[in-house]
Design a protein around this nucleic acid. Structure first.
Lengths: 231, 231
DNA sequence: AATCCAATTTTTGCGTACGAATAATAGAGA
DNA sequence: TCTCTATTATTCGTACGCAAAAATTGGATT
């Protein structure tokens, strides 16, 4: 399990990325350098470098001389992120529609078809894994590696907040129906329509999440919770 | 000039960011840790952390055990970046058209009007500064801070490659005419048209740059310059 | 009893030294 | 003369230690 060839700081960064994206590390959690160094059997130096990289990618928040915490956002910012993600996804699927090879189109459709069983079985975890592959395949089909990387990075950054969203009752059924609409537009070669359908799909997902953040997302481990913001 | 309150690693990161974005440090230049440490009167530790952050943001390229160099890209990747930037800009101006306040709209138009003199005078540097402000004002007018940050970061990442593009004969006159088209669509409240005009504007800028990278952009300071690429 | 100031503690930030890995170079053999 | 190997030298990665800054706690004063 230990890639000895890989840089220690990169191993730590990847491990923390996974834990943040998977929700094991909740937003607001303090990331103590010494504790992490002990956990990974390393010195503080590689831990610090890993945290710096995570801060640069927006996954953690580094406050000078006050330590680093898992990135914590306001509901407004989460909605901003979702909107931006929706636009990126829409752009990707539009370009992909016009540029994907027949092979890529076939693979995407196969992938989509396979998700029917997961919905029928109510297997949220399997659907979540499929969903990631579905969207990432569209990124690659843009044949624009820079855009694909940007999309992937943004998706990763949102992972910590997206997790709960699929749990909502028959959200995955809705999700698959929306995928179907995207696939149909792709099959007809209508990139603009595919983009509109994808944007709607992402904004629906955002709405599903919004019903959570309104109730669950209270800023954890904050020093002073101000109930009344300044005018 | 020396912000003593600021973190040393952040000072170094900012200084290097400026030098890369301004073109003082050319793509492919080696960034020697020891040399940089001496230049900034610091040890290698903060230099390494600064370089890590720059690598995470894509401005430099870190090759394990082979040092870090200013990010060097292929012409294909530069075009990918321009296309992605064009799509981001198009998205921004579309959202901005629908959401900007009358005040913001007025300021944008004032800014645009002021650029006429620069074109008449052929002042490329002044136009370049105006151009940055023009685009950044549109980012902010989306009223989506995440999207604005993404757009800004992508623009910064491309800065090292964009510099020469405006030098082409009467490119700035063309640029201003394209801005005019964007402004007109905004004034009419037609976000979709504004987006199309902005996309065209960015792709025209890309074409202007492409005429350079075909002739000027040879990978500098490379060990072996291969004249004939592999099949 | 509450508030403010000071001291201690905890944690981050920076410097230095050592070890390891890779690339470059030189030498020998084919 | 070219190639392969070994050695050397440079550079990167890690660890540890010290210093500085912020948070917290305790004491004193109002």
């Amino acid at each position: 399990m230990n890639d000895e060839r890989m840089l220690l700081s990169d191993q730590i960064r990847n491990a923390l990325t996974d834990e943040i994206a998977s929700g094991q590390l909740l937003p607001g959690s303090a990331l103590d350098e010494t504790l992490l160094a002990a956990r990974f059997n390393a010195s503080r130096t590689p831990v610090r470098e890993a945290l710096r990289e995570l801060a640069a990618s927006g996954l953690v928040e580094a406050r000078p001389r006050r330590g680093v915490i898992v990135a914590r956002t306001t509901p407004e910012r989460i909605m901003d992120m979702f909107e931006a993600m929706a636009e990126i996804e829409a752009t990707c699927v539009r370009l992909a529609t016009y540029r994907m090879t027949p092979l890529e189109r076939g693979e995407l459709i196969d992938l989509h078809n396979a998700s029917a069983d997961m919905v029928a079985a109510g297997d949220v975890d399997a659907y979540d894994a499929f969903n990631r592959k579905f969207h990432e395949k569209i990124y690659l089909a843009t044949h624009n590696s820079f855009l694909a990387e940007q999309a992937l990075a943004t998706r990763l950054r949102m992972a910590a907040f997206r997790r709960t969203q699929l749990r909502e009752s028959n959200r995955i059924a809705h999700s698959r129906a929306e995928h179907q609409a995207v696939i149909s537009a792709i099959a007809q070669g209508d990139g603009e329509q595919a983009a509109r359908n994808m944007r709607a799909h992402m904004l629906n997902a955002a709405s599903a999440l919004a019903r959570y953040i309104a109730t669950v997302m209270r800023r954890p481990s904050d020093s002073a919770p101000p109930p009344a913001p300044a005018p």
